[in-house]
Design a binder for these strands. Structure first.
Length: 559
RNA sequence: UGGGGCGUCGCCAAGCGGUAAGGCAUCGGCCUUUGGAGCCGACAUUCGUAGGUUCGAAUCCUACCGCCCCAGCCA
């Protein structure tokens, strides 16, 4: 698709810029974006927004989008993350073609460029300690002071930098700094560090280097070398743009990409910082990066969210520069929309109570044909067994029905989905007063869910035959953080965690539900969407609740 | 009190001087063998505030208020 007849130019301000640049002939009409994760953690929903933006734009404008690992800090980066990130981007539905790069691919070129800057008198080796450097930097309201090493000659700088690279100095002994302006009101321009000494093993370059470039230097150079046209990043880098441009203006790079900043995604009930997510994993608050309660792409994937639902969500929230907090329910809307159309229906009772149908023949079994998905006839039907004893959801019965209660109660009649009408005749309790059994009768005329007299039965319950039911583990999830907003000042991560974020329940499922492949998502009728967890064994299905159904009764009873 | 940003419905978000899109949520009603889904309808006389320019301003100007980011040899 050509830029000219691309998406409406008003879709968002970033695309607007891309359209304008195309119109003015900038970048020779090319569009090249990049998604530049640091391999120091797993991708989360915030990254999904960025991925959809970058890959989305390249796709819409006939451009390319590179996947580039920003691997400039070996102390924090690992191959495991590199692999997970690629898996997740692919899962989300994007393809970087042959454009897989690493900032470390350019370490050699970056070193040459650094020497160029030194030769131009625009960079110098500084021996200030970290503490001294901070003191010399000044504050937002006071200018900094020039380093005593700022005046070193080109040849001395060249020599010292060569020795830095050769590993002659200790970690922390010195840095290479850009020589810009210690009085700049922008702290980033006060002679920022370009290189520091780090004796750490790099996941790709091994021990080849002991100096590693800082983000500000590495990122713009990487973008330029790849001839990126639009370098899209988040708001906190807005202050860095003058530095981004400064490096590219003073280096003989093949291109000068344009940095554009947008607001990162924030969501209620969710922690979106890799540092905090790492802590959740390391401290054992969750079972791993792919715990279904995590906002990581691997977590929501295991939870049962589909890539297309996540993409639809990302498109719907738009892109702007305003700090925002998106309701988590907004994401759930797209998850339900997708699952409603695609998930097959199946019956499962999560909290069973036994129902005995007194007038139903002792050993009779009937098989009812049930539609797999009312939203899609092509999904066909399945057979569901019925017998004299069935399990009913405990919350579908009450001894004291409130107004507008359509479910079972003493003397009340309900429909068993796909089967018969039953009427509750007697409640059996144990010594503690707990209900152990409901004695009911059925109307043989109601077979299939209707009667010749056409009487109205408003309640319809799901059920599972006692004789045929298969038991399975069901994991019910709630927000990892109960409060919609992040941590209060001084609040510990551990204290903010919702103690009820995971509830494990032993459920009974209709036979068809026990035969599904791992990863399959189904709707447990009237309850929600559930997917099979990889923890499932051959004889023991384990389900994750992906998201509950909207429940107007719950709302009514709350009021 | 330095610099950089942002302020349009409960939440996101269009709008780019010509008289407030859309989505989520919410509230009614219809329909329903999932209290699901679906369908219909309601939902900002007003755009952080105050002035100004203009025939006309959410859009331009001025001042003020509020919120976010920046003092890593992290990204």
């Amino acid at each position: 698709m050509a830029a000219a007849d691309g998406p409406a130019s008003s879709r968002d301000f970033v695309r607007q810029i891309v359209v304008d640049d195309g119109a003015s002939g900038k970048h020779e009409g090319r569009v090249a974006t990049r998604f530049p994760p640091e391999p120091n953690g797993y991708l989360h929903l915030g990254h999904a927004k960025s991925i959809c933006l970058n890959f989305g734009i390249s796709g819409e404008f006939g451009g390319v989008c590179h996947l580039r690992f920003d691997d400039t800090n070996p102390a924090k980066e690992e191959q495991e993350y590199v692999d997970a990130i690629q898996r997740d981007v692919r899962w989300l539905g994007f393809d970087w073609g042959g454009h897989l790069y690493y900032a470390s691919d350019y370490f050699g070129q970056m070193l040459d460029y650094a020497c160029h800057l030194i030769r131009e008198g625009l960079a110098y080796v500084c021996d200030l300690t970290p503490d001294e450097m901070r003191a010399y930097r000044g504050t937002p309201t006071e200018p900094g002071r020039e380093s005593p090493f700022r005046g070193r000659s080109v040849s001395e700088n060249l020599d010292r930098f060569a020795r830095m690279v050769a590993g002659e100095y200790e970690e922390g002994a010195c840095t290479l700094r850009a020589r810009i302006d210690m009085a700049s009101p922008n702290l980033n321009m006060r002679d920022p560090a370009m290189y520091r000494i780090k004796r750490a093993h790099h996941h790709r370059t091994g021990d080849q280097y002991v100096v590693y470039p800082m983000y500000d230097y590495a990122h713009c150079v990487s973008d330029a070398l790849e001839r990126i046209t639009h370098s899209i990043c988040t708001l906190e880098f807005e202050d860095h743009r003058p530095l981004y441009d400064w490096f590219l203006e003073h280096l003989p790079v093949p291109a000068h990409p344009r940095q554009i900043e947008f607001a990162r995604l924030n969501m209620t009930h969710v922690m979106m910082s890799k540092r905090k997510l790492l802590q959740l994993v390391q401290d054992g608050h969750v079972r791993g990066w792919d715990d279904p309660r995590m906002p990581t792409l691997s977590g929501i994937r295991r939870r049962g969210y589909s890539a297309s639902a996540v993409r639809a969500f990302c498109e719907s929230i738009g892109v702007s520069k305003a700090n925002s907090l998106v309701h988590y329910e907004h994401l759930e809307h797209f998850v339900r929309q997708d699952l409603n159309a695609n998930a097959r229906r199946v019956m499962a009772v999560l909290d069973p109570v036994r129902v005995v149908i007194e007038n139903y023949p002792q050993d009779q079994v009937e098989w009812f044909e049930a539609e797999n998905n009312p939203e899609n006839a092509a999904d066909g039907t399945r057979m569901v067994p019925f017998g004299r004893e069935i399990w009913l959801e405990r919350e579908d019965f009450t001894e004291n029905p409130p107004p507008k209660w359509f479910r079972l109660a003493p003397g009340r009649e309900i429909r068993l989905k796909h089967a018969y009408y039953i009427t509750c005749r007697e409640v059996v309790k144990d010594a503690t007063g707990a209900i152990t059994e409901l004695r009911c009768t059925y109307d043989p005329e109601s077979r299939g869910g209707g009667t010749p007299d056409g009487r109205v039965v408003r309640g319809t319950s799901h059920w599972v035959s006692v004789a045929h039911g298969v038991s399975g583990e069901v994991r019910l999830y709630d927000h990892l953080f109960a409060k919609p907003h992040g941590l209060d000042d001084g609040e510990e991560l551990a204290d903010a965690i919702n103690p009820d974020s995971l509830k494990v329940v032993e459920a009974v499922l209709e036979p068809a539900a026990a035969e599904l492949a791992a990863g399959t998502c189904v709707q447990f009728l009237r309850q929600g969407y559930f997917c099979i967890d990889p923890d499932s064994g051959p004889d023991r299905p384990v389900y994750n609740r992906t998201v509950g159904l909207r429940d107007t009764w719950a709302k009514l009873s709350r009021a």
